[in-house]
Design a protein around this nucleic acid. Structure first.
Lengths: 212, 212
DNA sequence: TAACTAACGTACCAGTTAGTACATTGACGG
DNA sequence: CCGTCAATGTACTAACTGGTACGTTAGTTA
């Protein structure tokens, strides 16, 4: 049947990774209950049997997908060098990195939505995610502190609230793109408006930190 | 079997409404594919048969749920009297109404997420939603115009972008409550922080409209 | 009060889906 | 080159799930 009847090659790592890649797309696109293990398997070069062999079941596969997705985004954030920038520029930079990452990883955004739809019940089983994420806020905290000492930022602003502000803006733009587009006929991801929204976010955040 | 073997009462409107209510919860909680028609029916005083009798099927029931949810939120928004407030206060008021509504209607927020997960493909079949929603932005547009004439708001700010800003903040707080709580150990819906976030949103929006 | 119909209930079916029993094969150590 | 086992493939199944055929009943009207 198959034209390229390649002799079966064995590569545990590749099979595992391939399953994770396809499962990420599938869970992001169809949600947890909407995703089909058969469909995931069919889109790889291996079979459904391997999902159970490597992960144990649909739920554990989902968990592995979630864990890897979060690990990736936090790794990207950690790569940002913010020390050599003045506080205002550093804050803008952090906002922009989040902005860019959300735009570049829609599957991750969707997974966040999927996990929230399930009240984040799986996430609690992935304790190490907490460490990863708190480091993201630590970075922000440092910048705000520095800005306060320099007198360019006001007092009493919590880093976590700033993080929430940035995330909410970036998240909404990607996650609710479709209903927003349907209701208001505006594509929030239109490349022509990208720079504008990126700047708008920076203005918002720095503006908030400098309000009287 | 049934203790209260009440003689069967017939009430088409009530049966329909009950199905809609339960279906709203079910679709919001479990998503479109996660929701079960049997489960919806079991949680009402009627049977699955009635879903097909009144709505035609699972998909049409979902559509009816979506339509009603949107109609309700827009009706609430229209009730806001904004004319007698000065532009800054009016803007704050609009933001607060959105804030309150998001908090009071988590099921609606979840439905928005569910619909986006499906690329808003159902929403396009509900054309009249567009009218409802554009009126929400018209209100905002009027306030911004008035503020510009009074010289308290700067030029070049689009009402739809302000609407997006307000929505993103309110939406994130409700929709991503669970992952945010799991990762950062902060409940965004904690009543003790409610006033703070409500004020923060007002500060953000008015601050953005007054930036240099 | 008989006839009629909207409203409702029951029992079932066909297709789907997560999961598994069991057979097979490739690669590697000795 | 052979034994061994990790890795893989095939063929199922039990449970679920949306949908429906068909019968029944409450309320209304002639």
């Amino acid at each position: 049947m198959s034209v390229d009847a390649q002799p079966r090659r064995r590569d545990a790592e590749r099979t595992r990774a391939e399953l994770l890649d396809v499962a990420t797309e599938e869970f992001a696109e169809r949600g947890y209950s909407g995703a089909r293990v058969d469909e995931i398997a069919n889109r790889t070069r291996t079979t459904k049997r391997m999902i159970y062999y490597y992960f144990g079941g649909k739920e554990q596969l989902y968990l592995a997908v979630l864990e890897r997705a979060y690990a990736e985004i936090r790794a990207a954030e950690q790569a940002v060098d913010v020390e050599h920038l003045d506080p205002v520029a550093a804050l803008r930079r952090l906002a922009e990195v989040t902005f860019d990452h959300h735009e570049a990883h829609p599957a991750f955004i969707k997974l966040v939505g999927v996990e929230n739809a399930q009240h984040a019940k799986h996430m609690n089983h992935v304790a190490r995610l907490v460490d990863l994420n708190s480091s993201a806020v630590d970075l922000l905290h440092g910048v705000l502190d520095r800005g306060r000492r320099d007198g360019v930022f006001r007092d009493g602003v919590d880093a976590l609230d700033v993080h929430m502000l940035i995330s909410s803006f970036c998240f909404f733009r990607v996650a609710n793109r479709h209903t927003f587009g349907a209701l208001f006929d505006r594509d929030l991801l239109d490349p022509a408006r990208r720079t504008f929204y990126r700047t708008m976010l920076g203005d918002l955040v720095t503006g908030y930190l400098q309000e009287v």
